[in-house]
Amino acid sequence: MKAIKILFLSACLLCGPAIARAQFIDEAKNALTKGDRSTWSGLRFSYDRSILKSTAEESELKQGFNGFTLAYVQSWSIANRLPLFVEAGGGLSFSRHSFDSSADGVTLKTSHNLLGLYVPANVVYKIAINDKIALKPYTGIYLRLGLLGKEKYEAGVEGNTSSDSYSVYGEDGCDWKRFQLGWQIGVTADYQRYNFGIGYGIDFNKLAPEARFGTFSLRAGLNF
C-alpha cells in the first residue's frame, strides 16, 4: 500500500504542473483535445521487482523476485474530445528469486524461476507537454498466465547435500495459481519515440497458498 501511495503522489506531482501548463498555453484552443489524440504502438521493456508476501496476520515473511518483461502494446483512442486511450498488449515476463544462507559450513540455497505471459489493459491519459514530450498516467488491470515455474533447493555440509527440483504449478503440494489477475497504476513519459515510466501492480488473487504478489516496475520502450 505504501508503494501505491508513493506512486499516486508521484503521478499527481508530475501531472499537476503539466496540466496547469497545458491549460495555460492552449486554454483558448482547448489544447487537450487538439493534436493529443494520436495513438501509438510499441515495444516495452521493464525491470520488475516483485515481492511475494505472506498474507498471514502480522507476518513479515516475504520473498523478493527480480525479473523483466518484454511486451508489445497498442493503443486506441476512446474519447472524441479527450486524449484518453486504451492501451493493451501482450508479452513475456520472467522473474527469479534466489536465497543463499551459510552458517558454520551449513549451506542452504533455494531458487524460484517463473516464466509467464503478461497481458495488460490500461486506460491512459495523454498530456502533451510540447511536440516531443508527453506524460501518460495510466491505470488498469493485467492478466498473467504462468507457463513455467520451478522451485529448487540444495542444502548440506561438505558434500553431504540434499536437493530437489519441482514445478510450482500443479504438483502435489505446489498448487501455485497459473492465472493471476491484478490491478496496476503508474505513469510513463514519451520523449520523441522513447518511452520511460514507473508502475506498481498487485495481484487480486493469491499466487501461492498464503502469499500474494506485488510488483514495482521501471519501464523503457520504443514507440512505432
Binding site: S54, L61, Q63, F99, S101, Y153, G173
Partner: peptide, 10 residues
C-alpha cells in the same frame, strides 16, 4: 524477514 524463507511443498 530475519533471513528466513518459505520453500518446500505444502
Amino acid at each position: 524477514s530475519g533471513g528466513t524463507i518459505s520453500y518446500g511443498k505444502l
